[in-house]
Structures are given as structure tokens and as C-alpha cells.
Amino acid sequence: EPEARKIVEKLINNGLSPEDVKRWAEKNNNPEVKKAAEEYQKR
């Protein structure tokens, strides 16, 4: 999901860690963003 990846990169560029992004995604019920954050961590 390229859109989710863009969101993850934007949040990380704004100073969030991938863990923060995953928590944000869970709080906002956004499994695509959570998955993208996990993939981002593996890179």
C-alpha cells in the first residue's frame, strides 16, 4: 500500500519512531499503516 508507506515516512520525518507510528496506527485503527511501519523497520 504506497499511500500507507507515504504516511509512515511522513510521520517518521516528523520525528516519530516506527514504534510510535505503529501505536498511532493502532489508535487510529489503521492496519495498513501499521503494516507499512513494520515493513519500514525491516529495511
Score class of each variant (00 low, 15 high):
R5A: 14
V8L: 13
N14Y: 12
R43I: 13
A36D: 02
L11F: 11
L11P: 00
E9L: 13
R23L: 13
P31L: 10
E3R: 07
N28A: 08
V21C: 09
V33Q: 00
A4T: 05
G15N: 03
K42Y: 10
I12N: 02
K6F: 09
G15K: 03
P31V: 09
S17Q: 04
N14R: 13
V8H: 01
A25V: 01
V33K: 00
D20L: 06
I12K: 01
K27S: 10
E3Y: 08
L16I: 06
A4G: 04
N14L: 15
W24L: 03
P18G: 03
I7C: 08
K27Q: 13
E9D: 07
N29K: 07
E9C: 09
E3A: 10
K27A: 14
K10D: 14
E3F: 07
R43A: 13
K35P: 01
G15D: 03
E19P: 03
D20T: 04
E32Q: 12
K10W: 15
E26T: 06
R23I: 12
K10Y: 15
E38R: 03
P31N: 08
Q41L: 13
E39D: 10
P18I: 15
I7R: 04
V21D: 01
K22R: 09
E1N: 12
P18F: 15
E26W: 03
E39F: 06
E38W: 05
D20S: 05
I7M: 08
A37E: 01
I7P: 02
K22A: 10
K27W: 10
E1R: 10
G15I: 04
N14S: 15
V21W: 01
V21Q: 02
I7F: 11
S17W: 02
L11D: 00
E26Y: 04
W24C: 00
N29T: 04
V21A: 03
E38V: 06
V33P: 00
K6S: 11
K35F: 09
V21G: 00
R5K: 13
N14C: 08
R5P: 06
P31C: 05
K22E: 07
R5I: 14
I7V: 08
A37M: 09
E26I: 11
K10T: 13
E39I: 07
K22M: 15
A25H: 01
K6D: 12
Q41W: 07
E26A: 07
G15S: 03
N29M: 07
W24I: 02
R23A: 12
L11I: 02
R23G: 05
K42E: 10
E9P: 00
W24V: 01
E38G: 03
N29Q: 08
K22P: 00
R23C: 05
E39N: 07
E39S: 06
A36R: 03
K42Q: 13
K27P: 00
N14F: 13
K27R: 12
Y40S: 03
G15H: 03
K34M: 14
Q41V: 11
N30F: 15
N28K: 04
A25P: 00
N13R: 14
E38I: 10
A25Q: 01
E1L: 12
E26N: 05
V8T: 03
Q41K: 08
P31S: 09
D20V: 04
N13S: 13
I7T: 07
W24S: 00
R23T: 10
Y40V: 04
N14M: 15
S17I: 02
N13G: 13
E19D: 11
R43L: 14
R5D: 12
N28E: 08
K34G: 10
P31W: 11
N13E: 13
K35H: 09
Q41H: 08
A25N: 00
R5F: 14
K10S: 12
K22H: 06
W24E: 00
N13W: 09
Y40N: 02
A36Y: 12
P31Q: 10
E3W: 13
R23D: 09
E32P: 07
A25L: 02
N13Q: 14
I12R: 02
K27N: 11
R5M: 15
K10L: 14
N14E: 15
A4L: 05
K27M: 13
K6G: 08
P2K: 15
E3Q: 09
K35E: 08
N29W: 04
N14I: 13
E19Y: 06
N13A: 15
E9R: 10
L16S: 05
L16Q: 04
P2S: 15
K22T: 08
D20W: 09
W24G: 01
P31I: 11
N30W: 15
K10I: 14
K10V: 11
Y40T: 02
R23E: 12
K6T: 11
V21S: 01
K42C: 06
N29S: 07
W24F: 02
E9F: 08
N30H: 13
K10Q: 14
L16N: 05
P31H: 09
K22F: 11
N13K: 14
E1P: 12
L11Q: 02
D20H: 05
V8K: 00
I7H: 04
A36T: 04
E39H: 06
E39K: 05
N30R: 14
P18W: 14
P31R: 07
E1Y: 12
S17E: 04
K22W: 09
V8S: 01
K34Y: 15
E1W: 14
A25M: 02
N28M: 11
S17V: 02
V33Y: 03
Q41N: 07
K34R: 12
E19K: 04
A36I: 13
N13H: 11
A25K: 00
V8D: 01
P2M: 15
V33S: 01
Q41I: 14
W24P: 01
E19H: 05
K34S: 09
N28Q: 07
V33C: 02
E3S: 12
A25R: 00
V8I: 07
L16H: 05
K27G: 06
A4W: 11
E32G: 10
A4K: 01
V33M: 06
Q41R: 07
E26K: 04
P18Y: 15
E26D: 11
V8Y: 05
E3M: 07
V21N: 00
R43V: 13
A36L: 12
E26R: 02
Q41D: 08
